[in-house]
Design a protein around this nucleic acid. Sequence first.
DNA 1: GATGAATGAGGATTCATTCAT
DNA 2: TATGAATGAATCCTCATTCAT
Lengths: 218, 218, 218, 218
Amino acid sequence: MPEKNQTPAQEPAAESTPRRRQARGERRIAQLLEAAAAVFCSTGYTAASTNAIAREAGVSPGTLYQFFPNKEAIAIELGDRLMHEMRETYGEALAPVDAATPLAEAVGSAVDRFIAFNCRHPVFFALMHGPDIPGRIAEEHDALHATLLLRIETLLTSLLPGTPPADVARTAHVCLGVYKSGLELVLAHQGAEREAYVQELKNVLVRYLEPLAAARTA
Amino acid sequence: MPEKNQTPAQEPAAESTPRRRQARGERRIAQLLEAAAAVFCSTGYTAASTNAIAREAGVSPGTLYQFFPNKEAIAIELGDRLMHEMRETYGEALAPVDAATPLAEAVGSAVDRFIAFNCRHPVFFALMHGPDIPGRIAEEHDALHATLLLRIETLLTSLLPGTPPADVARTAHVCLGVYKSGLELVLAHQGAEREAYVQELKNVLVRYLEPLAAARTA
Amino acid sequence: MPEKNQTPAQEPAAESTPRRRQARGERRIAQLLEAAAAVFCSTGYTAASTNAIAREAGVSPGTLYQFFPNKEAIAIELGDRLMHEMRETYGEALAPVDAATPLAEAVGSAVDRFIAFNCRHPVFFALMHGPDIPGRIAEEHDALHATLLLRIETLLTSLLPGTPPADVARTAHVCLGVYKSGLELVLAHQGAEREAYVQELKNVLVRYLEPLAAARTA
Amino acid sequence: MPEKNQTPAQEPAAESTPRRRQARGERRIAQLLEAAAAVFCSTGYTAASTNAIAREAGVSPGTLYQFFPNKEAIAIELGDRLMHEMRETYGEALAPVDAATPLAEAVGSAVDRFIAFNCRHPVFFALMHGPDIPGRIAEEHDALHATLLLRIETLLTSLLPGTPPADVARTAHVCLGVYKSGLELVLAHQGAEREAYVQELKNVLVRYLEPLAAARTA
DNA sequence: GATGAATGAGGATTCATTCAT
DNA sequence: TATGAATGAATCCTCATTCAT
């Protein structure tokens, strides 16, 4: 977008050609990422094949490799874009919480927004859904994981001021784990049952955090 | 070759052969399952190859398929045996809880035993660590999952009498999810930090269940 | 061959089955190596594809990989067998030269035997024909190269006693280089012209070594 | 972009454009050949990819194909230019030898110049380093080979007057082969060892040719 | 039962080359 | 001219599974 505003009327033809080429590339990348998202969702990241992604995108395998060096890079770029959109939509921190906001409300709205985001981007869960090998987190999902943790830590720091950083980190890990497992349940259900699971997820988190937050008001 | 030289002429062949064959079969199965456990642990279920399992067991691929029709069957049998051992060790229900046992104690001991079991059988986590495809639970892990749920439901029913079954089921799903994510964190750490995560896991569960349990005493 | 002489008549059936299996494997390996030799000859080592080798051998690609981990291993095994046959046919050293043998005769017979061997095994040249990248010798050809050098050094040591090892090594390298280039020319021609090139190759080597050998008689 | 701003309005477009285009084309070709040389040197001809050459030259693959129909053509043109420079630097024949020049001197200076040329143009060796397929000389290297042979034949004709052309041709082939293998050894070493190999190369050639040259003086 | 050879489709990735812009 | 996107066959290699022995 920054390049659009320079010399708007002087060199119309000389520049449109490379611009169009670039635009085509951008479109292809978007198209490939979309296809990758679909494939990741339906088969999982591990089982997804680059050929399947290319096929889904309606291009040849070679085209995919013109834009991404390997499968991992696709996952990483997809994760980056998701995190970017999340930041754009919901701001830098998970939620700007001031001391007056009740915990239940803060957590509730964070969960609602997280879940809404996931429903809009089902891949998110597939990418977040981490390690094939217990205890090890694959690189592809690492950045996503780290970013989410950071967001949660930021929220927790504002909710639980004065807590030692190590404890905040641990609590953030726990919350993320709880959230991931809750999300799995939410996505596995529909309608009223889904709503019930959303409520349960909020309950778990709020009840877990309440005693910790109580320290600050005390 | 060691088994060839034992009792060469004493037993009537017609009787000893099938019995011995059966015994040998059992040994082979145990050997294969052990190998499968090792491979699942080090590479994850999806990436585990049947050839690798056979190699680890010191037998040929053909032998593996004499006892298991496919990879999935191995995981299922492994899960069955784990659940069997769990039942044998800890009894039919997760814990025989009477009304007098404080919730924290009941949950604490259940978590401790669960974790102890996992440390004794690291595959457990690999098998439990479910779906490659978000929202869908793979068949291999299905039985395991169902059994665990049942155990948790049994415990919850005794903890929360009078709760509608649908709510108990939902709560059990949530608890299992929380437990799985907590276990992941526990296994990813060592020493004091691991202990801290164990405590947090207990906290999450106790605080989540407390208000529900309160209803019964009231 | 060593296993054939044990218990020749006691257990005829119990042992023939695994033996046959092994024999099948050996035959496959031989067949694959033969196919590889043909492909290496017609397309060169670098351009040879494992699929082409498998096709030439009339087996599936998977079968090839049951016996060889990769293309390089095929070349190495092929080289090993060639060196083995060379040793079996011509003895450990290139030629057992005593001081009385005239240089021309020693070199002539060594060249003749080398060339005869190459005509019997055209791959030999393809494998010997070294580095794609000047100055670097690929691992596949390394062992072959080293063995040939050793043989030449042994011959030279007997021809040129008292020469410093470093000089012998250098001379051996030169002789091998000359031989390789001469062989290329020999193989590229037929009939009388080929014979003429054989003679020239001998001339080059004899004239090169004569002054060095003169030192010993003096 | 630097070429866009020179002489923007002075020359009539109809005339300057084709001339400038030609000049630009020449520069492009030189640039591509330089890049190809670098890639051939570092990976060898066979393994060199046209994409890599284009990348090294800083142009797109399409541009490369605007000037060369395929990879082979690049090698051929590169070889042509090398031979051209060789002719420009060292004259039409390898060396203008008169009867008075001692053989050792003539050969020594020819070898020295050849080697110097190779050190200035490392691709030369990569291109000369002929056939992937033993016995067959690839088209790419054919012209190079033929030109070198011609030069050597010319030299030999002056050194060995009265020798039948077929013998001269054969001798030239042998000399070229010896030179190529010697060059490989020279390039593979450094410092004093390299010098020693240069000397050995000269020895081989001189001793090989001496008896042939002796005939003329006799 | 046990073996290990055999399969062949499918995995990721590369590359010479073409083509619309 | 120049670009870079597009191709698709070919590369090496793996793996669940079968089958003759």
